[in-house]
Amino acid sequence: MISPLDLARVLEEEGYLIDEEAATTLFLALALEKPCLIEGPAGVGKTQLALALARAEKRKLIRLQCYEGLDLSKALYDWNYAKQLLRLQLAKTENWDKIKVDLFSKEFLLSRPLLESILSPEPVLLLIDELDKSDEEFESFLLELLAEFQVTIPELGTISAKTKPVVILTSNNTRDFSDALRRRCIHIYLTYPSLEREITILRSQAPELSERLTQDVCGFVARVRKLPLQKLPSVSETLDFARALKALQKVELNYGELMGTLSVLLKYPKDIAKLEERLRKWETEAQHRF
């Protein structure tokens, strides 16, 4: 890829539409071989961007899903205790000095996603998803990996990447990261797509929808996103909502006929109640207009 436009084009071929600014930033991250930290509200397509990039770059995807309590034994490596025990039982008569070195060799090492991405001989894309859910200790551990593409295992020493992986980190912004981590990454902030972009997304992801329904649904969702709701509808929820209307044989969106379908779009009862109230206003407005 020689330009951001080129990157945007290959991503589009993989079904992901990216705006120019984000494409430029991602392009620079790839050019500088730096990890890319993608932040933004849930459902704006952070993970999808990483998946599309892996396909576009023909890299093997290795995904680490973060959660509270995630530690090195789940993210980086662990020793195969059962195998070590077996080895010990079989080697009662052997030389102990030899065995104790042997016990902590690569044969007894269980690679977890981070180590797997470092050891992989083929190009990989490492997706560290929802990093904000992990603990701060884990974030500190990642610094070595992000800066040097290497990890240190006390018993084995430092292991460097065979092929530099593309690293994408995503965050829903529930907690802040340290300056040290941010400094090592190129930062992209994704927001909800514009009306035009969302129409294009729906056209490509759900070609079975009529043009009228696609435009109506996107216009409606754009209005809903301006309301003060606890959780705004994501792109995938827009898609689900449009498909739900299609399943109900709707060819266009009428405010009066949406009751009962809103739970596809919104996930909190309070939000649904707010929208239902607003729908009545919009319906009256629409009637006045015609």
């Binding site: 430029t24 620079l28 190129i186 930062h187």
Partner: peptide, 19 residues
């Protein structure tokens, strides 16, 4: 390396680490 890209965009992409 990329003289065709907007300077502001390059600088902003690399200098800004927090939204």
């Amino acid at each position: 390396r990329f003289p065709d890209l907007a300077e502001k965009q390059i600088i902003k992409s690399i200098f800004i680490h927090r939204p």
